[in-house]
Simulated scan of single mutants.
Amino acid sequence: MKNILITGGAGFIGSNLALKLLSKGYHVTVLDNLSPQIHGENPMENSPLFLSIKDYVKFIHGTVTSVDDWKQALEGQDAIVHYAAETGTGQSMYEVQKYVDVNITGTSLMLDFLVNGDYQIQKVIVASSRSIYGEGKYLSKEWGAVYPKHRLSEDMDQGNFEPTFPNSSALEVAATDENSKIHPSSVYGITKQNQEQMVLTVCPTIGIAGVAFRYQNVYGPGQSLKNPYTGILSIFSTQIKNGNPITIFEDGKESRDFVFIDDVVDATILGLEKNEANNEVFNVGTGIATDVMTVAKELSKNYGVEVPLNISGNYRLGDIRHNFADLTKIKTVLGFEPKVSFEQGLKKFTAWVNTQEIQKDQFGKSIEEMKSKGLFK
Rank of each mutant, 00 (worst) to 15 (best):
T29R: 15
I358D: 08
G287M: 06
I132T: 15
G144T: 12
F12Q: 02
N279I: 12
L114F: 05
A145E: 14
V28L: 07
V333C: 02
Y215Q: 03
V28G: 08
N310C: 01
K123M: 04
N194D: 12
V67W: 15
S224I: 02
M93T: 09
A267C: 12
I6E: 07
L233S: 08
V292Q: 08
V259T: 07
G318H: 12
M156P: 03
E357F: 11
S47G: 01
V64K: 02
V28Y: 03
V126W: 01
P166Y: 03
V292P: 03
A209W: 07
V202D: 00
T238D: 09
S23E: 15
T230M: 05
R151W: 08
G25S: 10
K339E: 05
F324C: 03
E368Y: 15
D291W: 00
A10V: 00
V102A: 12
A267G: 08
V211K: 01
M156A: 10
A296F: 01
A289N: 06
N275S: 15
N16F: 09
F50W: 00
V281N: 07
D101I: 09
S129R: 06
V173P: 14
I206R: 00
E273M: 10
H150W: 11
C203V: 02
G90H: 14
D266K: 14
T290M: 02
Y99V: 04
F249A: 05
K331T: 12
I38H: 02
Y133V: 03
S15T: 10
V126D: 02
S52K: 04
V81G: 06
Q158I: 07
A296I: 01
N242E: 01
N217D: 12
S131Q: 14
V353F: 13
K192M: 10
E254P: 07
D68V: 13
L270H: 07
K360V: 14
P228M: 07
E254M: 14
G134L: 11
K20W: 00
I232G: 11
T176Y: 05
G106E: 00
T205R: 09
G364D: 15
E172D: 09
T191I: 08
N242L: 08
S224V: 07
Q216G: 07
H27S: 14
D118C: 10
N278F: 15
I125Y: 04
E196V: 14
E357V: 15
F236K: 01
G222W: 04
K373D: 01
E162N: 13
E254C: 10
Q72T: 15
N42T: 00
